[in-house]
Design a binder for these strands. Sequence first.
DNA 1: TTAAGGTAGATGCAAACGCATAGAACCCAG
DNA 2: CTGGGTTCTATGCGTTTGCATCTACCTTAA
Lengths: 141, 141
Amino acid sequence: MTRANEAWESLMRAYAVLMKRFNAEDVWGEVTMREYDVLYTLSKCDSPLRMSELNRHVLLSQPALSRMVDRLVDRGLVHRCTDPGDRRGVRLSLTPEGREVQREIGRPHARSVARALNVLTPEELDQLAAITGKLAGNEEQ
Amino acid sequence: MTRANEAWESLMRAYAVLMKRFNAEDVWGEVTMREYDVLYTLSKCDSPLRMSELNRHVLLSQPALSRMVDRLVDRGLVHRCTDPGDRRGVRLSLTPEGREVQREIGRPHARSVARALNVLTPEELDQLAAITGKLAGNEEQ
DNA sequence: TTAAGGTAGATGCAAACGCATAGAACCCAG
DNA sequence: CTGGGTTCTATGCGTTTGCATCTACCTTAA
């Protein structure tokens, strides 16, 4: 077992443990954690996002994401229109209500995250962000 | 946005990116990545595992895990028997075939993992393992 | 001994997922 | 400007998931 494999296993375990803990928190209301992930990703970008771009951030197949966006549009949380520049694609953004829902859920969830990661020192937080950033950034191969 | 939130977001992103990459690799054969996770967890413990114990390691609801184990039992990869000491519970272990399948898939997958994490220095790998270990280990609250 | 409460895993059912593929729009060579 | 190849999203379909609930078993205490 190499160090790389141990590190990856440890990361997976931390992810699973924390995801379960967050999921068990009573903050999600009318939205699932996966749907929140979409709302959050959209909330970070002011310019509308392409489906394919959104799909890079969300751990979901392309058809599953397409249908989840469908539902969010039906529920009035997301706005979708075909991209005038490339009429195959779509432009996705939050509706005012979607933005409101994201904020309302994001507030307590962010507190949970902060609480869960409080076991780490500020230096460790920085190291974690830097290391995982390096992992995600490297897209070739 | 606190450092804790940035670190968590970065971790989530790394997890999503790498999971997608691994999933796209052509090493899974007759088994899904989630099923492999179960086989791998079982392969690490020589003594049979309880369903609830297994469920702590796998990011899946209890009913979903119960049925996944069902299928793995049907396919002859996992052995399940009721725990003689507590007849509500079950004891889960790999069959010889299950162990074989796990090894066969684990070999190339471990190489993929090592390749993906090669962008990190040995020190960074150790830091990542230590930090995520600390995150997962802290179970209270 | 037995009734009340708790815990482990299984099951009914609707919702959501992934795979394969379709359809529409773009791009480029001829 | 047309036909073949590619890219982007949507849809058909069978499988898997989560929620709520159920059953079976353990535990405690009267």
